[in-house]
Simulated assay, not measured.
Amino acid sequence: MTATAENPLQTGLRQKVLVLYLASSALDARTVGWSEYDGTGATHPTTGDGDEPPYATGLDALKDGWRLFQASQLNPPYPGHEYDTSFLKHEFFFEKLV
Rank of each mutant, 00 (worst) to 15 (best):
4 T>G: 08
3 A>C: 02
80 G>T: 01
96 K>C: 08
42 A>S: 13
7 N>D: 15
56 A>V: 10
6 E>F: 06
10 Q>C: 01
40 T>A: 07
27 L>K: 07
66 W>I: 05
12 G>Q: 06
86 S>G: 15
55 Y>W: 11
44 H>F: 11
63 K>E: 13
76 P>Q: 04
70 Q>H: 15
76 P>D: 03
18 L>S: 06
27 L>M: 12
66 W>M: 05
44 H>T: 15
14 R>C: 10
19 V>T: 13
55 Y>L: 08
43 T>A: 12
29 A>W: 01
28 D>S: 10
17 V>Y: 00
68 L>Q: 10
49 D>E: 08
18 L>I: 03
91 E>N: 04
37 Y>Q: 11
70 Q>C: 09
87 F>A: 07
5 A>N: 11
98 V>F: 06
21 Y>Q: 11
88 L>Y: 03
9 L>P: 00
14 R>V: 09
5 A>V: 13
7 N>L: 07
83 Y>Q: 14
61 A>L: 11
36 E>G: 07
89 K>D: 08
57 T>G: 12
70 Q>S: 15
42 A>Q: 15
21 Y>H: 15
73 Q>V: 04
60 D>P: 00
31 T>F: 06
93 F>V: 01
40 T>Q: 05
60 D>W: 02
95 E>S: 14
28 D>E: 09
25 S>D: 09
91 E>Q: 09
21 Y>T: 10
91 E>R: 14
53 P>Q: 07
75 N>S: 12
88 L>G: 08
10 Q>Y: 05
11 T>L: 02
36 E>S: 08
35 S>A: 11
94 F>R: 02
29 A>F: 02
65 G>Y: 06
31 T>A: 10
54 P>N: 13
84 D>G: 00
95 E>K: 14
21 Y>I: 08
64 D>G: 04
29 A>Y: 01
38 D>K: 07
64 D>A: 15
75 N>I: 13
95 E>A: 11
7 N>A: 12
50 G>P: 03
37 Y>A: 12
93 F>P: 00
16 K>Y: 04
70 Q>D: 09
84 D>T: 06
50 G>N: 06
37 Y>L: 08
78 Y>A: 15
81 H>D: 09
45 P>T: 12
7 N>M: 06
55 Y>K: 08
14 R>T: 11
81 H>S: 13
92 F>S: 04
93 F>W: 14
5 A>L: 13
80 G>R: 05
29 A>S: 15
9 L>R: 10
52 E>Q: 14
22 L>P: 04
27 L>C: 04
55 Y>I: 08
7 N>S: 13
69 F>K: 08
78 Y>F: 11
61 A>T: 14
60 D>C: 01
71 A>F: 00
63 K>Y: 02
34 W>R: 03
8 P>C: 01
36 E>Q: 13
37 Y>E: 09
18 L>C: 04
36 E>W: 00
5 A>K: 10
95 E>R: 14
64 D>E: 09
70 Q>P: 00
94 F>E: 07
86 S>M: 03
